[in-house]
Amino acid sequence: MKKILSIFSLVVVFVLGSCIEQNYPIWEGAEVEFQAAVVNAPVAGQNYPRLTVGNDVAGGVVNLQVNLVARQRPNDETITYRVVPEGTTAVAGTDFNVSGSLTIPANTSFGTLSVGIVNTGAVGGSVDLLLELEGNANIIPSENYKRVQLRITRPNPPAEEGEGS
């Protein structure tokens, strides 16, 4: 008897549950975000991650994937970004080169922000470059994933003979 009652209860739940119309809202917004910010933990006390790269990186370029969180667009979308002075100790033209914009090609969900890293040689230490997506007239930056910081490390100069003896 308990088995029949249990089966009957399940049938009633499925029948009544399937009759409820469910209108889930569909988000129609459009945002851009750094993939690196999505998959990497933020720096302690900040809302962005820090990626470490050497100043002798292969090809002299670091490519950062930028995601379009929206329906794909039928035309190319130009997305602007900026170097954030607070959080940046690197010098444009000396440590890095950027253009200030990137393109998300038509009918895709990804673009690439390329940062040229200048090989300053073995001078020691490191410098930081904080980048922030700005978007465009139709696409806003994701508030949580719009920033990424690059820490550009520079090897120490070789020790001169007679040092450390």
Rank of each mutant, 00 (worst) to 15 (best):
S6R: 07
S6E: 07
L10D: 05
S18T: 13
C19F: 06
P25V: 15
P25E: 11
I26R: 15
W27D: 15
G29I: 03
G29V: 05
E33Q: 14
F34K: 03
A36F: 03
A36P: 02
A37N: 01
V39Y: 08
V43L: 14
V43H: 07
G45D: 01
Q46W: 01
Q46F: 04
N47H: 02
R50Y: 00
R50W: 00
L51N: 09
V53S: 04
G59I: 06
G60E: 08
G60W: 03
N63W: 00
Q65R: 12
V69G: 05
A70S: 15
Q72C: 07
R73E: 08
N75D: 12
D76N: 14
I79Y: 11
V84A: 15
G87A: 13
T94D: 12
F96L: 04
N97G: 13
V98E: 10
S101M: 06
S101H: 04
L102G: 06
A106R: 12
T108K: 09
T108W: 11
V123T: 13
S126Q: 08
L130W: 05
L133E: 06
A137K: 11
I139S: 01
I139M: 00
S142T: 01
N144K: 13
K146I: 05
L150V: 08
R151P: 03
G164A: 05
